[in-house]
Design a protein around this nucleic acid. Structure first.
Lengths: 213, 213
DNA sequence: CAATGTGAAACAGTTCACAGCA
DNA sequence: TGCTGTGAACTGTTTCACATTG
């Protein structure tokens, strides 16, 4: 039992931080060195109060009458989000999705280098995909240990997702990003986030339904 | 004006409906024709009360002592989510992401056939990608009208996202699914949902940070 | 008696209003 | 004066407790 004194920053806040960060990056790129909660808020589409509450809840403060320091704010938020130390990821599933992901360069310049692309299918194992040789699933633990991967990405079909999750957990990753349809169950020491296209489409479907009166 | 008291189903509920739907599909596949809120809840990882509140808020009811009818529940939820009439989608951006999406078959069997894949780059226009010839951006309105697309998918780089959104809105789509980093602004008649890999990774970053005490 | 359906409590998140500071 | 920082009101969501019913 960890007697954690929790910093207690709300999930809602955390989910907005990356958004702020991108807004700030834009500002920094245009050499603006100070920003008001108002301006940042309109940039990213939230309410100014919300920005202030979020930042203040993290202990970040601006200057009254002026605003926040763009660069220091970026650093502070980056720190909270764990930027800085690159955390390598491993992708399980070298199908369409896995391949697409491995080409996505947001991984590398976001500080999440791809350690390996793994699959079970002998037909794809050994093939080179965007500079990575596809590795067999049974090398997973070795890969994870060696590269110190902390994030596993599930890019398998739905049927294989739970198995992939189990293997990844066993291999020692601490977070999962699940692109497969359906739900995976994991010990509660690992965090799972899910990205699901079908769900998104369904939700849009609902809105359209409503819109037609 | 319809004097209809609006169904008023909460966003939180809507976001869970697709999940229930998939759970129910699994049950149907294993020929189970009745399900308790408890069972469904554990399957999809929510609390039983939540399932009941959700369903009852939509006016769907089960049988006390027994549970809910799997197939009828599927139909009812499907109806709410606008399944049934296929709503064609158009994808803007034929880069890595656009290509990956066009190969994703969840579109077709989810009732969202891909009407077209559109790009600005003359180098890719005309190329065939998973059975679709890439069309030039200026054909967008024509495509949308002709196929009655109601959903537009933005799969461009960040810099082009706002332009893509504008064009899509002008062409007449009613919902956007935005895969590009950053924020797009649209008239509030169109619904936007955002899927952002970088954000997800950032959030995982936060959790890892915390986990290290 | 095993399950639903629901009012009411608890909790989380957002927004307001305004005090206080550079 | 312009903007931050925050208590307090409010809105939305989850959870609990339990009466109800097939």
């Amino acid at each position: 039992m960890t007697p954690q004194p929790p910093p207690a920053v709300s999930a809602a806040t955390v989910s907005r931080l990356p958004v702020y960060l991108r807004g700030l990056a834009d500002l920094a790129a245009s050499d603006q060195n100070t920003v008001s909660s108002q301006q940042l808020a309109t940039m990213v589409g939230v309410k100014a109060t919300n920005v202030r509450k979020d930042l203040s809840s993290l202990g970040f403060s601006g200057t009254r009458g002026v605003g926040y320091q763009v660069t220091t704010l970026m650093q502070q938020i980056g720190l909270v989000l764990g930027d800085g130390q690159p955390t390598p990821v491993v992708i399980v599933g070298a199908g369409n999705l896995g391949r697409a992901l491995s080409r996505y360069d947001g991984f590398n310049n976001g500080g999440f280098p791809i350690a390996a692309l793994v699959d079970v299918d002998p037909k794809v194992i050994g093939k080179k995909i965007s500079g990575l040789k596809v590795k067999p699933l049974n090398k997973l633990t070795q890969i994870v240990t060696q590269h110190q991967c902390t994030v596993g990405i599930i890019a398998t079909p739905a049927a294989a997702a739970q198995e992939a999750a189990d293997q990844l957990v066993k291999a020692g990753v601490r977070s999962l990003l699940n692109f497969a349809p359906g739900v995976v169950t994991v010990p509660n020491t690992v965090t799972v986030r899910k990205v699901d296209l079908a769900t998104e489409l369904h939700i849009l479907g609902y809105h359209q339904q409503r819109q037609n009166k």
